[in-house]
Computed example of a mutant assay.
Amino acid sequence: MDQAQSGNQSGSEITEEEVTDRVLTLPNVISFIRLCMVPVYLVLLLCGHDVAATAVFAVAALTDFVDGQIARRTHTVSKLGQLLDPAVDRILMVTGVLGVFLVGRVPLWVIVLVVARDVLLLVGGWWLISRYQIRVPVIYPGKFATTFLFVGFAGLLLNWPLVPGLGVCDLPWLPGFTDAAVSWGIWFVYAGLVLAIGTTVYYCVTALKMLRAARAQAGE
């Protein structure tokens, strides 16, 4: 999970998680290993090793949960981790959807939507932190969106088993809604996209409110 999300709620009390300046922490090492797995996944997929590529992608996605849990439970949430963990998530997400697109298992509009959202979150988040020291708190629906997309892409990578389409239209850019059989993963992708759009709107609205408050305080 995202190391940027700090604090545990117990009853009505919320305790802030201490953030350290340490670089060499176990969660950061795990995030770096996950980053190194990205090109491995892409090479395996493009070489036709679907099962191996799916396994690498699944392990990389799973460590997204592991490093965040370790960081909070061992009190090693770091400033580097707050930047590295979500950045690796975005890189893995973009590479995942790009790989599925390159092998022809997802339509172009899905990759455009996922990449555009991730670029917006990366660039916007970097600008807010560097310019105003504003960090929008991560919400759980956003994590669910990421999880659904990761599961969906893994299903599309494996490409088995195939399930019948709904047959409600004949638009080839809407797999799953035509008569053609599709991987079960496409439905997780759709669910993830719906949540992703909703949480992105929330992040943008929240960031705008925090930005106005910061500018007002600075007298801009």
Rank of each mutant, 00 (worst) to 15 (best):
L166T: 03
Y190A: 02
P141I: 14
L44C: 09
A4F: 09
Y132S: 07
L171K: 13
L45Y: 04
T206M: 04
T54H: 06
G7M: 05
L113T: 11
A71S: 04
A58V: 14
V112W: 11
I197S: 00
Q9H: 15
A181M: 10
E17K: 02
G48Y: 01
S12R: 13
G96M: 02
I111Q: 05
L193M: 13
V56C: 04
F153R: 04
A58F: 09
L166G: 01
V205E: 06
S130Y: 09
D50T: 09
P27M: 12
V59W: 03
H49L: 14
P39M: 12
L113N: 03
I111F: 13
V51L: 03
D67Y: 03
D64S: 02
N8D: 15
F101N: 03
W173C: 10
L208P: 13
K143L: 01
A154P: 05
V136S: 06
V51F: 15
P141H: 04
T95C: 08
L102E: 14
T199S: 08
V94L: 09
W184S: 11
P107E: 09
G48I: 02
V43E: 00
V119T: 12
I33S: 03
W184P: 09
G167F: 04
R22L: 14
W126S: 07
L84A: 00
M1K: 08
I91A: 14
F177S: 00
Q3S: 04
G81N: 08
F144D: 13
S183Y: 02
H75Y: 09
D170Y: 03
S31I: 14
P27S: 11
L92S: 13
G155P: 10
L98H: 15
V151Y: 07
I30T: 11
V88N: 03
N28T: 01
V136Y: 05
E13G: 08
F65K: 12
D170F: 03
L122G: 09
T63C: 00
L92P: 05
G81H: 06
A4E: 11
D64K: 04
T200Y: 14
V115M: 10
F153I: 11
W184V: 07
Y132I: 02
M210Q: 15
A181V: 10
V182F: 01
Y203R: 10
Q82T: 04
A52R: 02
Y41P: 00
K143A: 01
A213G: 05
I30P: 07
V88G: 01
S78R: 00
